[in-house]
Simulated assay, not measured.
Amino acid sequence: MKDATRLTRIGRPDHASGLVNPPIERGSTILAPSAGELYDAPPGRPHYGRVGLASQQALRSALEEMQGGAFCALTSSGLQANILSILTVCEAGGVLLATDNIYGPVRSFLTNTLPRFGVQTRFVAPDIGAEIGDHMDTDVQAVLLESPGSLTMELQDLPTIARIAQDKGITSIIDDTWSAGLTLKPLKLGIDLAAQALTKYVGGHSDVMLGAVVARTDALADRLRATERAMGFYAAPDDAYLAVRGLRTLELRMQRCADTSLQIADWLATLDCVGAIRHPARSDHPQHAVFKRDFSGSAGLFSFEVPGWRNADSETFLDALEIFGIGYSWGGFESLAIHCDPQLRRSATPARHEGALIRLAIGMEAPEDLIADLERGFAAVAAKG
């Protein structure tokens, strides 16, 4: 297992050409040098293109180093990364615990598809901590976390949950897309599998679909590797190359987005029409102490409440924006805004907020321009009456 550290040689290949970037190798068939090695390739020599070539291996190695993990599996999306992590450890007859703020498409997989594999899901409070032990019956095989949740921004007490899960022989999994594995080190806190959508901050330019899962221990690495291979998960070489490139500027871009997001959150807090600001890095977030303990920095994704607004008001607000785009995902240059209420689903706890819930994904534009754009949206709602 490698130590989690800041990266200084991301993706730099070790070969005689001297290139600072990994080469993009496209290929399916890899010829064996002899019949004996066709079925018994030596360690380090790929035997088929699906297992990954130079750019995929550079990305795996970089993410293993970044997280301090034993093995990194690659997938073609963040959703697939979550699915891979679940299928690595869950078996028929078992139960998965999942926090109630889990990403919508993952929730859909848990409720609509996973039961076909004989695995049931029970949802727990999105801000759960030590009380999760009360839900860990003998049939529970894994717990799936998302801290903070990408819409409602609740955090979980990760070190406590990880410790309880380990004591009970239960695998802990986190969707760590919000921090991109940079400002949070889940494996160092004891979480077993860290999944994320590289599509977002790591890719960084809204032009790649990619996911990753990093395993904490050698034993989990073996299970993750075997499941990745058996189920045919794959990441394209060009996409892996783009993710390696994105990693090199990740820290700078995330810091810029985080700083701007706090400026905008502070400005929103001055408006009479705005209610609670759901930004974990702000001191008024209910779990800010947990954030300060577990995270080394922030990100650009947060939400805010607007008491009295209905869905039609949210749509008027969004339609008036000219700089913010209306779209899913985050992590690119462009700032994005969505209204969350149509997609909120809860079963363990109700979604508690006043009026409408708006999510902002802050990009790289000037803060003053983004604030002026938001003013335009609020003015449109006010003019509508």
Rank of each mutant, 00 (worst) to 15 (best):
S147F: 06
E65I: 08
K200R: 15
V274M: 01
R223Q: 15
T316C: 08
D167T: 11
G297H: 04
R122M: 12
A165P: 01
G68F: 15
A165W: 00
A212I: 02
E368R: 11
F317G: 05
V213N: 02
E91F: 04
I86K: 06
G190L: 06
A58F: 14
L87Q: 15
T349M: 12
G44E: 13
L187G: 01
L250Q: 08
S283H: 08
L224E: 02
Q166T: 14
S335C: 03
R229M: 11
D222F: 05
T152F: 05
N21F: 12
A380G: 02
S179V: 08
L357N: 03
L374R: 11
F71N: 05
E354L: 02
K185W: 07
G36E: 13
D222N: 04
L193A: 08
I10L: 14
Q67Y: 14
I326H: 00
I326E: 04
L271F: 12
A58E: 10
P115V: 02
V140A: 11
G275V: 10
L210R: 14
M231E: 02
N112D: 09
M364T: 06
L79A: 09
R60P: 12
P33T: 08
P115K: 07
E64V: 10
L31M: 13
M136V: 15
D40Y: 04
A16K: 01
S283G: 12
V290S: 12
A372Q: 05
A348N: 13
V20C: 12
L145R: 07
T349C: 09
K200M: 12
G27R: 10
F123S: 04
V381L: 00
R345E: 05
A312G: 00
P42Y: 00
A162H: 02
D137P: 08
R248D: 07
E91Y: 12
Q287A: 10
C273H: 04
A58L: 11
L19S: 15
D176M: 08
R278H: 15
S335W: 08
A265F: 08
R345F: 13
G27S: 00
D319T: 00
H285D: 00
M136I: 14
R216Q: 08
A197F: 09
L220F: 01
L63E: 03
C72P: 15
S314T: 05
A212L: 13
D272L: 02
V106C: 13
S314C: 14
V140S: 06
T270Y: 07
V214Y: 11
G69L: 06
R225I: 03
L193R: 10
Q120T: 15
L7C: 10
R50Q: 06
V202R: 14
L268G: 05
W267E: 12
P367Q: 07
G203Q: 04
V213K: 01
D134L: 14
T99Y: 04
S314F: 04
E251T: 03
D207Q: 01
F233H: 02
F317S: 04
T152W: 09
P367L: 06
L336C: 03
